[in-house]
């Protein structure tokens, strides 16, 4: 028998346990699914209203109605995965630090970051992933079947899109785990969720909208320093605006790879440093 735990098997156990717990309260689970879908649909309503008044977001940005819906679907997919797998755990982590429960996680013969990152899965959050897939399929159908300049999806796009989705999830995960780790220093981090919401709010729109004296520095900070703008922008642009000649996005796509690796390594470093400062809360 090997000393190394099988991480995949442990993860599957976590996922199964969470599913069993969710299925114990089936109606509650269904209500959660429906409610998160309602928020998404209301949001869609807001954008439909906006496109009632304008043909695109930003002059000559190329983000017309269906292109933007591809963007929106991408946002929902990435967020639903993050919310399903990481959000409940990050919140739990802050609580573990405050109550001293982290002692038990540290004692287990498995990587602590893995243990606290994957322990819980909120399956109901994945319902938005389904809604996003429908919206994506509809928008792509509209884009590929429009009369003028129809979109052509090539195999490279089909391959790169899910890959960049995964990169986006990794960047958001890194940011979240770093934020959660700060609660070791702060004692308690109740505003974690708020802060998270306010920061990721910037990633919900095409980066072209951040322009002007205040917008340019904002765009640069949130692209290169805290790379949340590449999370949705790169995969969405890859699919919706592949032959954009306005500015070449290839460097940005390459940077997204660097940003993903950098974020993961950075968050790992922050997490380890934070653990070193942990002084158990129990007696």
């Amino acid at each position: 028998m090997s000393d190394q735990p099988s991480y995949w098997k442990v993860f599957l156990t976590f996922a199964r346990n969470s599913l069993v717990r969710d299925m114990t309260f089936r109606v509650n689970f269904l209500i959660q699914c429906v409610t998160s879908m309602c928020w998404a649909l209301m949001n869609l309503g807001f954008y439909l209203l906006i496109f009632h008044y304008t043909a695109q977001i930003g002059p000559d940005s190329g983000w017309g109605k269906h292109e933007f819906f591809v963007f929106l679907a991408t946002t929902w997919m990435i967020n639903s995965v993050v919310q399903a797998f990481f959000m409940p755990n990050a919140q739990e982590f802050s609580e573990l630090i405050r109550t001293g429960g982290l002692d038990f996680a540290l004692l287990k013969p498995i990587d602590t970051q893995f243990l606290i990152s994957f322990q819980k899965v909120e399956w109901s959050s994945l319902s938005n992933f389904g809604v996003a897939l429908v919206l994506l399929a509809y928008s792509l159908w509209e884009l590929t079947h429009r009369a003028a300049d129809p979109l052509v999806i090539n195999p490279a796009m089909a391959l790169l899109y899910p890959m960049y989705l995964a990169f986006g999830v990794c960047i958001l995960y890194s940011l979240m785990i770093s934020l959660a780790a700060t609660s070791i220093w702060l004692g308690r981090n109740q505003t974690l969720y708020n802060f998270w919401f306010y920061i990721t709010n910037f990633s919900r729109y095409p980066m072209e909208i951040y322009q002007g004296g205040f917008g340019d520095p904002l765009r640069i900070v949130f692209t290169y320093l805290i790379p949340i703008l590449v999370v949705v922008n790169v995969p969405a642009r890859l699919l919706a605006q592949p032959i954009s000649s306005r500015d070449s996005w290839a460097p940005l796509a390459a940077f997204a790879v660097v940003a993903t690796v950098g974020s993961l390594l950075g968050s790992r470093w922050v997490f380890k440093r934070a653990l070193l400062s942990y002084r158990s809360a129990s007696s």
Partner: peptide, 10 residues
């Protein structure tokens, strides 16, 4: 920023 982009496109 969103509204600025919307107004600029109109």
């Amino acid at each position: 920023f969103l509204w600025s982009a919307i107004f600029a496109a109109r």
